[in-house]
Write a protein that binds this DNA or RNA. Sequence first.
DNA 1: GAATTTTCCGCAACCGTTTGCGGGACAGAT
DNA 2: ATCTGTCCCGCAAACGGTTGCGGAAAATTC
Lengths: 331, 331
Amino acid sequence: MTIKDLGKMLNLSTSTVSRALSDHPDISEATKIRVRKLAEEFNYAPNVHARLFRNQNSGLIALILPEVNMFFTPNLIKGINKTIAASNYSLITFLSNDSYKKEKEIIKQCLGWAVEGVLISLSKETHDLSHLEALKQAEIKCVLLDKALDNEQYPAVTIDSTKASYMAITHLIKKGHRNILGVFGNPNFTISQERIKGYKKAMEDNNIPVLNENIICVDKSTDLDYILPPILNHNKDINAIFTMSDELLAKSLYHLRALGLTVPKDISILSISDGEFPYLTHPQTTHIKDSGSKMGRSACKFLLQYIKEPSKKQEKGLVVSTKLVELGSVK
Amino acid sequence: MTIKDLGKMLNLSTSTVSRALSDHPDISEATKIRVRKLAEEFNYAPNVHARLFRNQNSGLIALILPEVNMFFTPNLIKGINKTIAASNYSLITFLSNDSYKKEKEIIKQCLGWAVEGVLISLSKETHDLSHLEALKQAEIKCVLLDKALDNEQYPAVTIDSTKASYMAITHLIKKGHRNILGVFGNPNFTISQERIKGYKKAMEDNNIPVLNENIICVDKSTDLDYILPPILNHNKDINAIFTMSDELLAKSLYHLRALGLTVPKDISILSISDGEFPYLTHPQTTHIKDSGSKMGRSACKFLLQYIKEPSKKQEKGLVVSTKLVELGSVK
DNA sequence: GAATTTTCCGCAACCGTTTGCGGGACAGAT
DNA sequence: ATCTGTCCCGCAAACGGTTGCGGAAAATTC
């Protein structure tokens, strides 16, 4: 059932039918009623792709994720979906599998789909943003999620990592801890660097010397399996651990228990977290809440706004706030 | 960048370019190479809407989820995306937020998008499948995920829940446990009922009386906060716990620790699980692996196959196998 | 060298919808 | 009776990619 079919039955041209259905003032009320009635009767639904093809817009927002783990991603997806659902866009999702090559291909697909906006969390392999150039040329708005990769070109929605870890360490220091082990991700990522910076600054501001051996960086959380136990066995002075993510927290807690250390009696622990996992641990883990769902919502709202009116002031992106949630893992 | 643009640059007609890109035998190798090179250089991506419009299909698969939690869903999404990426479909994702009304609206949206297939995990509120009728009428293939809601109309991809819990309980019994507390979800869901059935059957097959007080059902995992502690305090005979999901496992472990019970010394625990969380616990939790990613892959492959050739034998769906993974939580 | 086949490419129509433009019919003003 | 304006509606082009068909040039056959 197409517009043409309707027109034939009513002895009307396709243009008239089209205009009648979209309530165009050029069409008489009588005609509109006739058309609507027949359309209803035959359950006419416009061909989406014909319309999108003609109008050159898709009503689609693309979400590109490097992976989907059990920590940050679920809430991020939730937040984004919530905002999308309240708009009249739909969400089309891609996984880059942490591959730069795949990411590039996905960008191409986005162009093909004529998406109107892109939310992208960069893959681990991605160190420059040249592959996003194609989006820019097509005037497709693109917002970076979480990982920003110092750049001036694309707005990013992030958390203030430096501040978050500064808050974390400061809290531990206030509670009397001075020998704090910092557990971070791949030191090549901006996100790790910033969190290390916050760690160091908090220590320095409190006149505590920063020991490099108390800062450990791992690429995969499983690396902790052979890194963490020896450190904890060897360095008995450590009385608090700071982990920069839920994943590292989970692994660290595992090893603490394996070593027979009780939280918070023997050792305190504090993490930057999405705010779900800490409630599943015993004792529940004090953390700096870095909400994925909040970031998802913010980023998505930001993008939609950015699409509607691309203003200069928005080109820098925004920073999602974090806060300390005191539970039971710090003595 | 369109086919026309490419043609102009190479002094070729659009038809030749089109055929060259799709490796048509009519086109000489030399021309194909020229075209492909230029297409690569200018980052040409075919306009999906134009192609789909012409071909009268959408290239879209819809994924409808009731929620996205940190356990099952991430891997499910991963598995589905993997299969989708290997096909030439794209994935459009919706969240029903466990609302029947929202689910119904989403179905309508799917019709609007002219999706070619739907993967749906039903919301908690959904007790009949009448809202899927519209899909059937439009000949859009629909596959149920995980929750099946006894029905003959739509194929479902599930795990054999009864068998999984039968395996679990049998393992515990073999290890010498007889007082096994079963922790289940909402008893109105088929999935819970089947798992309870497996529990009971295993007990009966081993001539152990089934005590109703040893079977607890909770709607939300937080309900365990007030249900589990009194039971464990009151009923000291319980020496093993079976939980039917990761979420229930996590909550149960929390309370075990809060009560000062050590796994597996004081009590054993075994769960049906996605296979990630058990490795984050200490000791690592013995579980029946019910892989979300495997189910995602299977379901998606099934759907794509079903779309390609809708045969009779496929109308019943399929059952994903599970297996016992022995770790350290059972004495 | 003529006839036939093969190779390679272009022409043009088509998919369904939207929209600028033009025009016929009709009413009211001059 | 002519002119101006309004109200409705149809014509036709355009969006980008695909494909049946036809045909020129080159290669092959007899």
